[in-house]
């Protein structure tokens, strides 16, 4: 319990931001998957990179949310710890990296599978408010140590 408290960072963002970003991610990844577009998957990789390193509140999608969507929303601010969506961005980054490597090396199947997993996660997040960190993180820890 004490470690939980210690790990508590005060960074709290609007939970509707990552959910909106997930919806755009679905659109971008779906298009990339169908067209096998290197520029599109690379663009999404950069977005994931920003989301995983700087934080999901600094991506271009988050900027769109803040400037265009948020002022029009009538629902209330939903506070969310920044760490869970950041974890999801890191997982997305891994899949996008594999996808880009697959496409560059001509291994299209690798691209398709990796992009497919990233798309599934983004879709689950956008449509069902799926918490990737809740479902995956503990399993990873249990498998590793």
């Amino acid at each position: 319990m004490t470690t939980l408290e210690k790990n508590q960072t005060p960074v709290v963002i609007d939970a509707r931001g990552p959910r909106f970003s997930a919806a755009i991610t679905v659109f971008v990844l779906a298009t990339a998957l169908v067209t096998q577009s290197l520029p599109l998957i690379t663009f999404q990789l950069v977005v994931f990179l920003i989301g995983a390193t700087k934080g999901p509140q600094f991506t271009p999608y988050a900027f769109l949310f803040k400037s265009l969507i948020k002022p029009r929303l009538k629902s209330e601010f939903v506070p969310e710890d920044v760490r869970p969506p950041r974890f999801a961005q890191a997982v997305g980054l891994i899949f996008a990296t594999i996808a880009v490597a697959g496409l560059l090396s001509g291994a299209t199947i690798v691209f398709t599978v990796a992009t497919g997993f990233a798309l599934a996660a983004a879709f689950l997040n956008a449509a069902f408010n799926y918490c990737l960190g809740c479902e995956v993180y503990l399993l990873l820890l249990r498998a590793r140590r």
Partner: peptide
């Protein structure tokens, strides 16, 4: 060829998502 993967991905993710929500 390239539409099949997206159908599989979105179909199975939707099925899993409904179970998840329930």
């Amino acid at each position: 060829k390239s539409f099949l993967p997206i159908l599989i991905v979105l179909g199975s993710a939707a099925a899993y998502g409904l179970w998840y929500q329930k």
